[in-house]
């Protein structure tokens, strides 16, 4: 009897540290990273604050709450971003309908004019509210927009190189991601421009687990050409809160869903 159990125990012992299984398909790694970074839970909320620093060290701040709902894992999603700081963008609301088979639909509500402004599809790799983050970084770049190649598998990371399928739409020629083998969270991303220089870097400094989902809580985007950077912190994270579809409509632009935006007690 022991002879039967021992090999099974041995197998378990080796399998224990998370995902010891080594993936070799770049597309599969990217798909799992996309799920880990953008699709945790069926929905979720987080409060975010940014410190935007320019090369001279001058700082600006942004603070907002993000609500997210998955329509399908790895598929369409909805995002609602409601700003609370600074005072000139307070009550500005950003709504994204993210699509896999076509361009995302995005709206920005400007409370001073009571204006629901739509943002054109091409306008995605531009600064999100003055940060070094892009509009596209809020809801995530579609895996299908790039080709992926597994460059290296280290003890900690899958290192992948990504090349855009339509290079005319983006400012980079390629980018490299370091994806944590355990959590599948991209821990570092470096973008290379046509001159062959790394000009933009995204780094994750802290990951914490919330309701079983490893989640980035501190990160930074650096502009290596001009020297500026945006630091981001995520707090009051909660998953599977039961956000209904109706939260992600024009109604929420004018009348943000206060019950859902309220900071959770625990």
């Amino acid at each position: 009897m022991y002879r039967e159990i021992l090999p099974a125990l041995a197998a378990l012992a080796f399998a224990a540290p998370g995902n010891a299984e080594v993936l070799t398909s770049a597309d599969e790694i990217v798909a799992r990273a996309d799920l880990a970074a953008y699709y945790a839970g069926a929905d979720g909320r987080s409060e975010v604050r940014m410190i935007i620093s320019d090369a001279q060290g001058r700082q600006q701040r942004r603070q907002f709450t993000v609500l997210r709902r998955n329509i399908e894992d790895g598929g369409d999603q909805q995002f609602l971003v409601v700003f609370s700081q600074p005072s000139d963008v307070r009550n500005t609301v950003f709504l994204v309908d993210k699509h896999i088979d076509r361009d995302d639909d995005r709206w920005l509500y400007l409370p001073g004019l009571d204006l629901v402004k739509r943002i054109s599809a091409g306008d995605k790799r531009t600064s999100f509210v003055g940060a070094h983050y892009f509009y596209e970084d809020v809801s995530g770049r579609r895996p299908a927009d790039d080709t992926h190649e597994l460059v290296e598998t280290t003890d900690e990371y899958y290192v992948l190189k990504h090349v855009p399928i339509d290079p005319a739409n983006v400012e980079f020629v390629s980018y490299i991601t370091w994806i944590d083998r355990e959590t599948f969270l991209p821990m570092k991303i470096e973008y290379t421009n046509s001159a062959g220089n790394v000009y933009r870097r995204v780094e994750v400094f802290d990951v914490e687990e919330f309701e079983g989902h490893p989640t980035v809580t501190t990160s930074r985007v650096s502009d290596l050409l001009t020297g500026g950077q945006t630091d981001m912190q995520f707090r009051y994270i909660k998953y599977d809160i039961g956000l209904p579809e109706t939260v992600f409509t024009e109604r929420s632009l004018r009348n943000p869903p206060r019950d859902w935006l309220k900071r959770p007690e625990s």
């Binding site: 609370s84 005072s87 307070r90 009051y236």
Partner: peptide
């Protein structure tokens, strides 16, 4: 004067209180 501390954990009041802003 501008407060530029990052790690102060000052995430602001939960906004049930009155916040005045303007210019």
């Amino acid at each position: 004067a501008q407060d530029d501390l990052w790690d102060d954990e000052d995430w602001g009041e939960e906004e049930t209180g009155t916040v005045w802003s303007g210019f």
